[in-house]
């Protein structure tokens, strides 16, 4: 195995493209090192991308934010303006692992590890966040929702890696929330999870919404029917019940050591409703 602390994007993409064997990107390393330790992967080349320009920056762009792909959870959590605009994204990201893991873990790593239970992904998907990807052929932008291809698989091509995420400008009355279910209070992988991103219109009703669920399908799933159930409402009980039902219908989970199909399906609906209420309150909505 070789270790390369790349100094430029071109050096990184070039090395990744040229390597015939197994490659891994090191940004936070909180998944890669676990896989190395367990012998699940034996890379020929690891490219450390943390030192590339912009990878650890959070800056304003077009009324929104551009967040470097190697920004750690603890770093994002310390950015007050970002957290005010995207509280659901911030809380999803910061739920990953421990304080120690937060010192290292990145959204790009969480996304590209491609676990359906990735805590930072549902809020990124619900928020319509777009990833910027560097590759041997140059840069391209891809919505976060289109990156996971299945458990452990992404749609990135050989030599490609994420360099940043773009969070669009926030409308007035927009906010988000993310909730997951874990058996303990910390340190677990989500058994099911839900992110809700919504906007409240001048009439006090939800004017736009996106709902995404985690750990209930091979990838994080958008649930347009759940969003539709709350659009045009003030989150009354009937709307929330319809939303929960839509969420349950979108679930296609598995039984495993962390939860059962029935449990995941039920709690995904419960969490979506609870997250919707939180996002609604954050957006200034009144029940």
């Amino acid at each position: 195995m070789r270790y390369l602390a790349a100094q430029s994007v071109a050096e990184a993409t070039g090395a990744l493209a040229a390597e015939a064997g197994v490659t891994r990107i090191l940004s936070g390393g909180t998944d890669v090192l676990v896989q190395l330790k367990a012998g699940m992967v034996e890379p020929d080349l690891i490219v450390d991308v943390k030192k590339l320009p912009g990878m650890r920056e959070i800056r304003a762009e077009a009324g929104g934010f551009r967040v470097g792909a190697a920004v750690a959870g603890a770093e994002l959590g310390e950015h007050a303006a970002f957290c005010a605009a995207w509280p659901g994204v911030a809380e999803g990201f910061q739920l990953i692992g421990s304080t120690q893991v937060q010192g290292r873990a990145t959204m790009a790593g969480n996304l590209c590890n491609a676990s359906p239970a990735a805590d930072s992904v549902p809020a990124l998907v619900a928020g319509g966040v777009v990833a910027r990807i560097a590759g041997p052929g140059g840069e391209r932008d891809l919505p976060v929702a289109d990156i996971p291809a299945g458990p452990g698989k992404t749609n990135l091509k050989k030599g490609e890696f994420i360099t940043s995420f773009f969070f669009p400008a926030r409308a007035m009355g927009a906010s988000d929330a993310y909730l997951r279910f874990i058996p303990r209070t910390e340190m677990d992988i989500a058994v099911s999870s839900a992110a809700v991103n919504l906007t409240i219109g001048a009439d006090g009703k939800v004017s736009a919404a996106e709902v995404a669920l985690g750990a209930v399908a091979p990838t994080v799933v958008r649930v347009p029917a759940a969003a539709k159930a709350i659009i045009g409402t003030k989150l009354d009980d009937a709307a929330l019940a319809a939303m929960a039902k839509a969420c349950e219908a979108a679930c296609n989970p598995i039984d495993d050591k962390r939860g059962t199909i029935a449990f995941r399906t039920h709690t995904a609906g419960v969490l979506a409703c609870r997250a919707a209420r939180i996002a609604h309150e954050r957006a200034g909505g009144k029940a």
């Binding site: 909180t30 943390k50 120690q100 893991v101």
Partner: peptide, 25 residues
């Protein structure tokens, strides 16, 4: 695997699990 914290150190002032950091870093 970063699940117990017994290897905690700080790197550039940031609390981390040293088992999840490459020595080369």
């Amino acid at each position: 695997t970063g699940d117990c914290g017994a290897c905690s150190v700080t790197v550039n002032g940031r609390l981390v699990c040293s088992c999840l950091v490459l020595a080369a870093e």
